[in-house]
Amino acid sequence: MKIAVFMGGISSEREVSLNSGKAILESLLKQGYDAYGVDVNENNLISAFTDNEYDFAYLAFHGGFGEDGRVQGLLDMLGKAYTGSGATASGVAMDKVLTKKLVAAAGIKTPKSFENVKAIDSYPVVIKPALEGSSVGIYFCNNEDEAKKAVEALGDKKIVIEEMISGDELTVGVINGEGLGVLRIIPKNEFYDYESKYALGGSVHEYPAKIDKKAYDEALKNAVKVHEVLGLKGISRSDFLLKDNELYFLEVNTLPGMTKTSLIPDLATLKGYSYDDVVKIMVDTFKK
């Protein structure tokens, strides 16, 4: 079986994707798989998938065109097996607005949302793109003037406006419906921004999270529920905020980072899985 690790892409998270893809490829080769990497960019968005020879696609994309269902749909049409969630589930999970509605309907608490700036009844708020990740394009607004400027800066992008909750940043990993554990992120910067996520030493990962057991168990249960409600497969990672022992769901990642500083490899150790084990599980789960 020949495995192609597709990485890069054209989203704002391209560099992170390349780092994830390189680490995954290194693991596959170390484990004896017949694997090679494919750097997808603006010049080969379609041909990368149609002109290369492979039996199985290991997807290492993050963000738009890769994590949003479009690549998955193409691979479905090509009859290729691939890692991660299917096209529809990926598309829905990528949209923070749709995801929040489905998750809230399942009884999981989320931060209060506002349709537009005029509807905001209290500050501060967070304004961010609905279809991007990795803390790209996030604005923390303390008044209406700042909120209007944030919306203007985001242009035509679909956006999320929600109350800003100051609390513990938690993330929960799930593999094939199994909750891995809860990790608390302690960023070196004031907020868990792009640098905190991907720079070495940008944040401290506390796992298992040293929080109240009830909150820990609830976060684990809710992450598994999100995985099930959205019809996800393989790995997902749900992010939460914990304030005064109240848990708030923020978003879910269907192709979480697999770099050396990523969260899933850390969470996997709570179940005794090594980085290589996670990579192997993904291949064994999806290969035809």
Rank of each mutant, 00 (worst) to 15 (best):
S27N: 10
L170Y: 01
V278N: 06
L242H: 03
G231M: 06
A215C: 09
G202I: 08
R184K: 15
L78F: 15
K30Q: 14
S11V: 00
P124Y: 04
K260Q: 14
E26R: 14
N253L: 00
G234S: 13
V204M: 12
G177W: 10
A130C: 06
I159C: 07
I108S: 09
D212T: 11
G177C: 07
Y194R: 03
Q72G: 12
K128M: 02
Y123E: 02
N142P: 01
D34N: 15
D51F: 03
A106D: 12
K22M: 11
S20Q: 01
V103T: 05
I185Y: 05
V160D: 02
I24T: 07
L255D: 00
F191N: 13
A199V: 04
V204N: 13
E195D: 14
H62L: 04
A219F: 01
G91K: 03
E42R: 13
L247D: 03
N245L: 01
Y123H: 09
G179W: 05
S113D: 04
K100P: 00
G107R: 04
L59F: 09
L45D: 09
K109F: 01
M1P: 00
K2I: 12
E115G: 05
S27H: 10
S203C: 14
A48G: 14
K197P: 02
L247K: 03
V172A: 10
E146V: 03
Y123D: 02
L220Y: 09
A119E: 12
N143K: 13
S122H: 12
H62W: 02
E146H: 08
T259A: 03
I159F: 06
E246M: 02
Y33D: 01
V92F: 06
P256R: 00
E190F: 10
N41K: 09
G79H: 11
L131W: 10
S47L: 09
G167P: 06
K210H: 14
V126R: 02
K148R: 14
K118A: 14
D121Y: 13
V103Q: 04
I127E: 13
V160K: 01
Q72W: 11
D55T: 12
S274A: 03
I120F: 02
Y275I: 05
Y216A: 05
S203V: 06
N222W: 06
T269I: 04
D95P: 04
D168G: 05
K213R: 10
A104C: 06
Y58Q: 08
A106K: 10
H227Q: 08
T88G: 06
K128E: 00
K30D: 15
S134F: 08
Y58F: 15
D284W: 00
L241M: 13
E178Y: 11
E26V: 05
I235N: 02
I264S: 04
P129V: 01
K214Q: 09
F56M: 11
Q31K: 14
K30E: 15
G231K: 07
K80L: 03
Y82N: 08
F114T: 12
I108W: 02
L270S: 13
D276S: 14
K233I: 05
Q31I: 04
G32Q: 11
A223P: 11
Q72N: 10
K233Y: 08
Y248H: 03
L25F: 11
D266N: 10
P187V: 07
I161S: 14
A268C: 09
G167T: 09
P256V: 00
E152A: 15
E178N: 15
G202E: 04
A105Y: 12
K288F: 10
L220E: 11
Y36T: 11
A57I: 05
S85G: 02
K210Q: 15
